[in-house]
Design a protein around this nucleic acid. Structure first.
Length: 706
DNA sequence: TTAGGGTTAG
């Protein structure tokens, strides 16, 4: 399915990227080259530099101009998938052509420090300035107390130690007005760093224009500081604008600036642009360092792109770049997002064998992966190793362990850990910890403990968030403690929890299995959280509602619902219909859900086997889908059309300890219809019938009704 | 933050 990335860069058109289409990660990507050309030809819009600024853009060729010979070469070159994972040395079709360079292979040299014996006094002075709460004038007055003359070196030292950015700027302007020595690039760079810390992009840009106006050179450090500040402020178009400006003014980025820009595209999820820049860098003779590889790993991880992750690994191997801890951590995260727990596990072992010691981020990534994959044994083994090796822990790792326990249904382990955390001096129970515990109690339906925790939270002042509220609603719904449910819901809304689609879905599911007064109470909550959804439930019950009205209203509700909540909504609504004996409405909803794409892959067919996949359906929806399928099969039998040898239904085996047991409910429904589907002994969660069974079943039913 | 780039939570 084509997914559009939001661009964030108005100089770009939206770039459709298909994760299942192999994207050419290299020079074979004609599209990427074209897009980079668009990118580099674009002109920035605002704010304009002052009119008297001589920045001489155009004097030097732009990046796209410089790259023209390159793109010509490439565009003549047919796409070649095999080259993606190979060394790019084969890229150059014509080796006599000069390689256009996109980055400088020499990193900018830093000026060396010499020891300043006045460092202690000056740092102390800077601390005093930083801590004080003077007005601007007061600040300037204190400046007169500077313990040593504000020479170039002394002023730089103080400037570098000041915070927050307001004071840095005051001091910077003060040095400027003193006119004791010329302000060189480094003064601007140091000031910019402080401004970046305060995310003051506009102020940084003003300083940059000031430099241009005063004829002070911007160097790679200036540009990378500007670019990363823009990135941190989510001003990605600004980041690109300043990157382009470098080339226009004749300054070549070094690898630090270059990978800062790679990361701009990575954060936008622009895989093609990242790869295009990467390949251009490689073609310029660049051997990327671990930081650049961490950026590549991040972009592929965000896209869940396993081929891309493999590319990063192979590329590092072939260039003999040893991954560092951050690269491993990023790759592990990426493996998790790409749904490859086994490969994450072996990568982790490789990392440990290489002598690197995992940190809390490594372990957080891995524990999360094992939890989501429901790999209980691996998760618990890793937990033991963490303890016995004394590997570093932090509060996020503790909370991730709790969430993992929730994923795996490890109630006792979670309780022990929760109590350890309660007693620990190193970490505090926060809303994540409480929510993880509420998740566990919600899943096992332990209403007593959930209530105790809810009360404890308000006592110790930990705020309940929307997820905690959802867990509690689920818990009290299952325990049929509807008054408690209403109480928690109302208290949450009062405390500022904004119900989201998940919470509404949860309320809706409680409505589906409640009766009478209880259902009305929950509907009242839903009315508050999502009035249209509540009204739709009433519409379903009203016999006079036409199919067209139903269809229109349902479409409108779905379009206002987040993607991942749409199917749960439809499932619950079908359950509500079935529980109210409105079977025909349930069939209508299943039809609409299918039309609106909520049940992709519900039916799969091979010449040998037709399969109904109901794993993602609720019990009521699965029953409805099965009835629908049986009706279709009966029509096929009666009209003597061909059927495959095997017909099967897949309910899934329910690997989650808390899962409701769709298979069991399905089995009893099949029995009720006396349909010839038998639960498979070899494949858990499969129900199988032969063609002959189905044909004779349909015929005997037809004979009975005749 | 000690003049510039990359990694952790429903």
């Amino acid at each position: 399915m084509a997914a559009k990335f939001s661009t964030g860069l108005d100089i770009h058109c939206s770039i459709p990227y298909t994760s299942d289409t192999k994207l050419p990660y290299g020079f074979s990507s004609r599209l990427a080259i074209k897009r980079l050309t668009i990118l580099c030809n674009s002109t920035s819009k605002s704010p304009k530099p002052p009119p008297n600024v001589v920045d001489s853009p155009g004097k030097n060729p732009s990046l796209s101009e410089q790259l023209k010979p390159l793109s010509n070469t490439i565009l003549d070159d047919p796409p070649n998938q095999a080259r993606i994972l190979s060394k790019p040395k084969s890229t150059w079709v014509n080796p006599t052509r000069p390689k256009p360079s996109v980055l400088s292979l020499q990193r900018q040299k830093r000026s060396s420090y010499s020891y300043n014996p006045q460092i202690r006094d000056l740092k102390k002075f800077a601390r005093r300035l930083s801590d004080c709460h003077f007005s601007d004038d007061g600040f300037l007055a204190v400046l007169e107390d500077i313990p040593h003359p504000p020479t170039r070196v002394n002023a730089l030292l103080v400037l570098n130690s000041l915070r927050p950015w307001q004071k840095t700027l005051l001091f910077f302007n003060w040095i400027k007005t003193q006119n004791l020595f010329p302000l060189e690039t480094i003064f601007y760079n140091v000031a910019m760093k402080s401004l970046r810390f305060g995310r003051q992009f506009q102020k940084i840009e003003e300083l940059a224009y000031d430099m241009i106006e005063s004829g002070i050179d911007l160097d790679n450090i200036t540009y990378s500081t500007i670019i990363t500040c823009a990135k941190r402020c989510n001003l990605f178009d600004k980041a690109v604008e300043w990157f382009e400006r470098m080339y226009k003014t004749g300054l070549m980025p070094d690898e630090v600036t270059y990978s800062a820009v790679l990361d701009v595209y990575a954060q936008l999820g622009k895989v093609e642009e990242v790869m295009s820049l990467y390949e251009r860098g490689r073609a310029s003779g660049w051997t990327p360092d671990p930081v650049a590889f961490a950026v590549l790993a991040k972009v592929f991880g965000a896209a869940g792109d396993y081929d891309g992750i493999r590319f990063v690994l192979q590329e590092m191997k072939s260039l003999e770049v040893q991954p560092n801890l951050v690269v491993y951590n990023t790759l592990l995260e990426a493996m998790g997002k790409a749904g490859k727990p086994g490969l994450a596990r072996s990568l982790f072992e490789e990392m440990v064998e290489s002598g690197l010691r995992p940190d809390a981020k490594t372990l957080t990534a891995l524990i999360k992966i094992y939890g989501k994959a429901r790999w209980a044994r691996d998760a618990l083994e890793l937990w033991e190793r963490m303890k016995s090796n004394g590997w570093p822990m932090d509060f996020i790792l503790y909370n991730t362990l709790l969430s993992m326990c929730a994923d795996l249904g490890l109630e006792e382990e979670a309780e022990t850990l929760f109590d350890d955390m309660r007693r620990s001096e190193h970490c505090r129970l926060d809303s994540w910890s409480y929510t993880a515990m509420l998740n566990i109690y919600g899943s096992v339906g332990n209403a007593e403990k959930a209530m105790a925790l809810f009360e404890e939270m308000s006592k110790v002042g930990v705020e309940l968030n929307v997820m905690g509220c959802t867990c509690l609603v689920q818990c009290f719904g299952r325990a049929k403690r509807i008054d408690d449910l209403v109480k928690v819901f109302e208290a949450s809304v009062e405390r500022g929890v904004k119900p989201d689609d998940r919470l509404c879905g949860c309320l809706l599911s409680v409505v589906s299995y409640c009766k009478g007064n209880d259902a009305d109470k929950v509907l009242t909550c839903l009315q508050q959280a999502n009035p249209r959804l509540a009204a739709f439930v009433k519409l379903l019950e009203d016999e006079s509602t036409s199919f067209d009205i139903l269809k229109e209203e349902f479409r409108s509700i779905l379009s206002n619902t987040s993607d991942d909540a749409r199917r749960p909504f439809c499932n619950c609504l079908i359950d509500i219909c079935r529980n109210k004996n409105r079977s025909e409405r349930a069939h209508e909803l299943l039809y609409l859900g299918t039309v609106y794409g909520l049940y992709p892959g519900l039916h799969t067919k091979t010449p040998e086997e037709w399969r109904l996949n109901v794993r993602a359906l609720s019990v009521g929806a699965a029953h409805t889908a099965f009835e629908e399928w049986m009706g279709t099969l009966a029509r096929i039998v009666q009209s003597q059309e061909p059927l495959p040898e095997v017909l099967s239904a897949n309910t899934g085996a329910g690997t989650h300890k808390f899962s409701q047991g769709l298979a069991n409910a399905f089995a009893s429904h099949v029995e009720k219809l006396s349909a010839p589907f038998k639960q498979s002994e070899e494949k858990a969660g499969f129900f199988i019938a032969t063609r002959e069974d189905v044909v004779s079943w349909v015929q005997s039913k037809a004979a009975a009704t005749a």
